[in-house]
């Protein structure tokens, strides 16, 4: 089975649940008292997508302001970026728009953008309407889902959608390398772009 490496980074305000989404996806676990990420955390997970194996190389970045300047290092080499906001915080949704702007200006041209409205289990405290977010996502041709890392809602779906959207090898040579022959090389390219 062919193996493709997909580089994904998560962006968004502090405390919106980026790490929780990754943990749910990679480990299928959830920790309500998770500590803030320091710097950026790297994890991988391989899933089957149709007749291919997709190995996600995930950069979970810290949302705190002092790490803000590091973000380009992570999104520059990514095939996809998941921008996360918290549906109970209007402010986080505004930050999201800034991230989109930044990605458009400085990110790789073909980057797949996914917007995740996390904490959808807290519907009572909702501040961002699903429709508003959906409309915004459509306007920028981004993937959109509301997720709950806590209740494992739409997490795998989110990554599956990214798998579906990322262009196949021939149209995006930088982000994916087919086959095993080039195994040493991908790590070389990784070093350059990340």
């Amino acid at each position: 089975m062919a193996l493709r490496e997909l580089k994904v980074c998560l962006l968004g305000d502090t405390g919106v649940g980026k790490s929780s989404i990754v943990w749910r996806f990679v480990e299928d676990s959830f920790d309500p008292n998770i500590n803030p990420t320091i710097g950026a955390s790297f994890m991988t997970k391989t899933v089957q997508y149709q007749s291919e194996l997709h190995k996600f190389l995930i950069w979970d970045t810290a949302g705190q302001e002092r790490f803000r300047a590091l973000a380009p290092m992570y999104y520059r080499g990514s095939a996809a970026a998941i921008i996360v906001y918290d549906i109970t915080k209007e402010e986080a949704f505004q930050t999201l728009k800034n991230w989109v702007k930044e990605l458009r200006q400085h990110g790789p041209p073909n980057i797949v953008v996914a917007i995740a409205g996390n904490k959808c289990d807290l519907n009572d405290a909702r501040e961002v309407l699903e429709k508003d977010a959906k409309d915004y996502a459509d306007s920028i041709h981004a993937i959109f889902v509301e997720t709950s890392a806590k209740n494992a809602i739409n997490i795998n779906e989110l990554f599956a959608e990214i798998s579906r959207r990322i262009p196949t090898t021939d149209s995006n040579p930088g982000s994916s390398n087919k086959g095993f022959k080039l195994r040493k090389q991908p790590s070389e390219t990784k070093r350059n772009c990340c």
């Binding site: 990754v22 990679v26 480990e27 998770i34 710097g39 955390s41």
Partner: peptide, 17 residues
């Protein structure tokens, strides 16, 4: 102190300034 203060290093590999 940094290591003992945070559980966020437990999973994955952290890369931080």
């Amino acid at each position: 102190n940094l290591i003992s203060a945070s559980s966020s290093f437990r999973e994955g590999e952290v890369w931080t300034p």
